[in-house]
Amino acid sequence: MTDELDLLREANPVSADTGPWRDRPLNARAELLLRQLPSRDRGRRTVRRVIWSLEAAAAATVLALALTVSGTPSSAVAASRPLPLVAHASRADVSLAEIDRRARTAAEESPGKSERGSHLQSWALSMKSGEDPVTLPRESLTRWNADGSGFTLEVATDPRHPGRAVIEDGPRPRTVHEGEVLSEERYPPGINSANQDYFEDPPAGAAALRDYLAVWSPGADRDPAELISAIESFITVWTPGPRQRADIATLLSRIEGLRPAGKVTDRLGREGQAFRFTPRASGLRYLIVLDPADGTVLDVEETITRDDPEYRLKAGDVISYKAWIY
């Protein structure tokens, strides 16, 4: 036990100045440090993707079972492993500074408000040494009312038809096409106990939003990777209004090392402008796709930057992605 504690202390995934963590998942930086712990047996570093939560792990089991019972081989789960998005650079590319300017103009013309709730498709990779990867494609819809009531609906998407929406939003949301309902929760009026993070309305102004994000994701005010992770988390709880979209565009434009990648067609068939960011010594790379018209975050994709034969990973393989539906 002493050796394991020494390894954890050396990695220091949650430092003394990061504030209370309570009962919620580690942020991307902490997860990454844990994944990079050296193994006593192998004596080298490996990169291992961990399913985001216990609920997600359970959902993966449900999905695999559903596919098997319905007559679809369980290998279809592994077969749905996506290829990375491909960006094409051209003279028509829109710079991040220009996107930021457009987002500011849009916010001035129609300020609007952020709305609590989100709609997105996501995918994550979990691995075990020497085994084929397991995928978890899913779509989730969360909506909240002014009185505090709301609902969450999570559906396993059909891996044979990636990118096709399986939830139809509306006054009475329902599942469409192929999809296995993983969870459905409804909450009565009152204090929202389902989403403890980001429970206060987001502020206006890039600096104020950065500080707001840092409350829930310590380090977001000083670490670019933490900031990107915090933005991801924030827009899974809130659908940003024009002002917050502009503030997010401003924060991204200030990240040193966030480079233009070119135009891209995302997994939902939308045209966007992509930007890459590779944190130092992380082994991961982010691809952030924005709507060039108003700075809306469309996608965030993570890929690995080096081979890892033990987990059957090659440089450029997708580790996870999120695609927001607006």
Rank of each mutant, 00 (worst) to 15 (best):
L5E: 04
L5I: 11
L5M: 10
E10M: 09
N12C: 14
N12A: 13
P20C: 09
R24S: 08
R24V: 03
R29Y: 06
L33R: 15
Q36L: 15
Q36P: 09
L37E: 13
T46C: 07
V47K: 10
R49T: 15
S53R: 15
L54V: 15
A59K: 12
S74Q: 12
S75P: 03
S80K: 09
R81L: 13
S95C: 04
R102H: 09
R104A: 14
T105L: 11
E108I: 06
E109T: 12
E109V: 12
S110L: 10
S110A: 14
G112M: 07
Q121H: 07
V134G: 07
E139K: 12
G148Y: 09
G148I: 07
P159Q: 01
R164A: 13
I167N: 04
D169I: 05
V176P: 07
E180K: 06
E180I: 03
L182E: 02
E184R: 14
P202C: 08
A207N: 07
A214M: 00
A220G: 02
A225M: 12
A225E: 01
A225H: 04
E226H: 00
I228F: 00
A230K: 03
W238C: 12
R243W: 01
R245Q: 14
A249R: 00
G257M: 08
G257N: 08
P260Y: 09
K263T: 10
R267C: 02
L268I: 09
T296H: 10
D299I: 08
V300F: 08
E302S: 10
T305I: 03
V318Q: 13
A323H: 14
A323G: 14
